[in-house]
Simulated scan of single mutants.
Amino acid sequence: MPSEGSTYGDIHRYEPPRESTAAAIGIIVLTLVEVIMVGLFTYGLISGWGYPRQYAALGNMFLGGLLAVIFINLAFILLLYRKEFLPDVMIVKKRRRKWEDLYIREEDVDGTTLGDGLGDSIKRAIYPYYKR
C-alpha cells in the first residue's frame, strides 16, 4: 500500500537492477545463437528448402521450426534483459471507484427511486426533444 504522504505519479518503490555478469554473458551467447539461426533461416529461404519438390514438406517444417526457435530465443533474451537490467519501479496511481468505471455521475451513485423523474421520462418518451 502506498504511504499516506505520497501523491499520484510519485515513485513509491525503486530498486536498481542487479546487472549480473552471468546474465550479460547469457545474453551474449543467446544473441550469437540468434544470429546463427537467423542466418540459417535466411539461407534456407534463399536456397529454396521450402519449394515444391520431393521433400518440400520437410523443408517447410524445418524452416517453420527454425522460425519458432528464433522467436523463443528472442523471448529468452528479452526475459533476461528485463529481469536483470531494468529497474523495478512502482509508481503510485489513482485507484478509481467502481461507479467511475460504469460512467455514472457522482450524484447518481445511489441510484434513483421508482417514481423519481417519472413525469420527465414520460414526456421524453412522447417528445424526444424535451428539455429538463
Score class of each variant (00 low, 15 high):
P2S: 12
S3V: 08
T7Q: 11
G9R: 00
G9T: 00
D10P: 00
D10L: 01
I11L: 01
I11V: 07
R13P: 00
Y14W: 05
E15V: 08
E15K: 09
P16K: 03
P17Y: 00
T21D: 13
A22V: 06
A23E: 01
I27K: 00
I27A: 02
I27D: 00
I28E: 12
V29M: 10
V29Q: 09
V29K: 12
L30R: 05
T31V: 05
T31Y: 05
L32A: 06
E34H: 15
I36V: 15
M37A: 12
G39V: 07
G39T: 10
F41M: 07
G44E: 03
G44R: 01
G44Y: 05
L45H: 11
S47M: 11
P52L: 10
P52Q: 10
Y55P: 04
A56I: 10
L58I: 15
L58C: 09
N60I: 14
N60K: 14
M61Y: 14
M61P: 04
F62K: 08
G64M: 12
G64K: 08
L67T: 11
V69S: 13
V69Q: 10
I70F: 08
F71I: 15
F76Y: 11
I77H: 01
I77A: 03
L78M: 15
Y81I: 03
R82Q: 15
K83M: 14
E84M: 03
L86A: 04
V89C: 02
V89M: 02
M90A: 10
R95L: 00
R97D: 06
K98R: 12
W99K: 04
E100F: 01
E100T: 01
Y103R: 10
I104N: 04
I104Q: 04
R105V: 09
E106Y: 09
E106S: 14
D108V: 03
D108K: 08
D108R: 06
G111K: 04
T113H: 10
L114D: 08
D116N: 09
D116T: 14
G119C: 15
G119K: 15
D120V: 05
R124V: 11
A125D: 08
A125R: 09
